[in-house]
Nucleic acid binder design. Sequence first.
DNA 1: ACAAGTACTATCATTTAGGATACTGTTGAA
DNA 2: TTCAACAGTATCCTAAATGATAGTACTTGT
Lengths: 121, 121
Amino acid sequence: MTKHSGCPTETTLALIAGKWKVMVIYWLLKEKRRFNQLQRDLSGITPRTLGKQLKEMEQDGLLKRVDYGEIPPRVEYSLTSLGRSLEPILIAMEEWAQLNGEKIPARKKQRHLENSLEIKD
Amino acid sequence: MTKHSGCPTETTLALIAGKWKVMVIYWLLKEKRRFNQLQRDLSGITPRTLGKQLKEMEQDGLLKRVDYGEIPPRVEYSLTSLGRSLEPILIAMEEWAQLNGEKIPARKKQRHLENSLEIKD
DNA sequence: ACAAGTACTATCATTTAGGATACTGTTGAA
DNA sequence: TTCAACAGTATCCTAAATGATAGTACTTGT
């Protein structure tokens, strides 16, 4: 009952919880960018996934897509003011991690360990 | 995922991105709670999922589990200071949503609409 | 004697996110 | 003339998250 509940915190969370969305916002905070440029910035993302994340963020009102109707195509993505207004929250999360990062036991690695042990057994 | 990069923002995000974790934190901010009490609080969660979320949060250092070794069992969950230190971030997200909620086109609801239309068709 | 509460775990199924790969049509460059 | 670049889409697939359901061992209340 997180997203179906009206909890505002989860509303905000849902907007940035995609695997690449925070990084998309970070790149677009610097300046507007074109599709293939973003794909190069976010090393490792596939065009399908990038397209989905961008479309969702556009639907959420976080960024706007401008298609110049040229050939070869030129499409520019930039943050809306709504998207830019998330920056303080992202910075707060960044600072929190920098302050408390040492206190967070690395759960991922533990899980890895568990798996290898299970396999050996 | 999001953790593959060393981005601190994503580190923080990963800690609260589980489907029920924000609500778990909210309840535990009020006071410590037992397992079945939390299950009642988070109406709709299954014990399996609650157990997983709690275990992850414990491994992440956000909460501590105290087993009193009694029978019938009594186990109490409470936030650590690390867990409590997330409160300002959650509040920031809450306030952001309350401020900007109207500007967010409801993507979820749109999808719902699509689905019902598809079913009717 | 029997049900309910306690804190879970085990097994199976479903849903969803994301990845791999291939492809589109057009243009300008080699 | 063949190639890369552009901004994607289409199809298929895997992995991870979450849900449904049932069951554990024990005790207290009726």
